[in-house]
Simulated scan of single mutants.
Amino acid sequence: ENPARWRGHLDKLLPRHKRSTLPFPALPAEQVPALLHKLDRMANPAARACELLILTATRSGEVCGARWEEFDLEGRVWTIPAQRMKAKRTHRVPLTEAMLEVLEQVRGNHRDFVFLNARRTGPLPGNALRRVLDAAGAENCVPHGFRSTFRTWAAEQTNHPREVCEMALAHTLESKVEAAYNRGDLLDKRRALMEEWSAFLGTFEREVVFKALSVSEPAGGE
């Protein structure tokens, strides 16, 4: 046997190496509504996909590979199958009015895929989201960073329990005992959280637009 073999030998004798994790570049929550306003003015599938990614706090692959069969628009639920999830567990996303508005803009473009690539032959590639963020002037963040933005906002500006916020991100509970007993997905409680997130983004956006119009008004208000 190889004395330098790692698996089943040295991995039992030596301490495990911990990988250092660096946070993804992310925007503060207060800057996201202005970005959404810019994206709303861009007429392409990548902009719509980026809007849905921000509103749902999901991952790039989950949004870009979204299929219409996953959406129950009447019941307002997006069910992402296990094979498309990082943790390989089915994840339900409660749909808010803002999310439905984004989906309505791309309905009818393809019978299977929600967001199409430029050739209209398949789903949108993940790097398209990064490109559209650059085009919108958000070069200092990455698509995955919006999950961090959402989680920080939920912790600092809401009273929703930690487990509700974590399940909104499809994170598994750290405690295996807790996970074993808590097998629900808290959909109704997460719906309230996502409604609050959408309201925060929508309200702030209107304020940004209002301020922009006020600055451009001529003296005397004429």
Rank of each mutant, 00 (worst) to 15 (best):
T121A: 09
R107V: 06
T152D: 15
A135I: 09
V177T: 10
D112I: 10
F113R: 09
G126Y: 03
A170F: 00
R162E: 14
T172E: 13
W153Q: 07
A170L: 02
S175W: 01
F150Q: 01
M167N: 13
K176Q: 14
V114L: 04
H110C: 14
T152C: 04
E97K: 13
V106C: 11
T158M: 06
N159H: 12
D134L: 12
G145S: 10
T158A: 08
A138T: 10
R131S: 13
T149E: 00
V142T: 11
H171V: 08
A155W: 03
G137V: 10
V114R: 02
A118P: 01
V164M: 06
E166H: 05
L103W: 03
N117H: 02
E97S: 12
A118W: 07
L133M: 15
D134W: 07
A135V: 10
M99D: 01
R151D: 12
R111D: 15
L124H: 06
V132I: 13
E139G: 11
A98S: 13
A136K: 03
F146L: 08
A135F: 03
F115I: 05
R130T: 15
D112P: 02
G126F: 01
G108S: 04
E163Y: 09
E166R: 05
Q157I: 09
F115S: 05
G122T: 11
V142R: 05
D134I: 12
V164F: 03
H144K: 03
R151M: 15
R147P: 01
A135R: 14
C165Y: 00
T158H: 04
N127F: 11
P125W: 02
N109S: 12
V177P: 01
N140W: 07
W153P: 04
A118K: 14
A138Y: 02
V102K: 01
W153N: 11
D112E: 12
L133K: 04
A138W: 01
A98P: 00
R130N: 14
R120G: 12
G126L: 07
L116I: 11
R147F: 04
V106M: 03
G122D: 09
A168F: 00
A118R: 15
A154P: 02
Q157K: 14
H144W: 01
E104M: 09
E139P: 02
R111F: 11
E174R: 10
A118M: 10
P161C: 08
E139I: 12
C141G: 06
Q157A: 14
E166W: 01
R162C: 11
V164G: 08
G137C: 04
V106T: 08
N140Y: 04
T152E: 07
E166T: 07
R120Y: 07
E156Y: 04
V102H: 02
G137T: 07
A155L: 14
H110S: 15
V142D: 02
L169V: 08
H144T: 05
R162M: 14
E166F: 04
R120V: 07
G122K: 06
N117E: 00
A170K: 01
G137S: 08
N159F: 05
E104G: 09
R162V: 13
V164C: 05
A135N: 10
L129M: 12
L116V: 11
A170N: 06
K176D: 13
A136P: 00
L129S: 06
T172G: 11
T172D: 10
P143R: 01
P143M: 04
G108I: 04
T152K: 06
F115C: 06
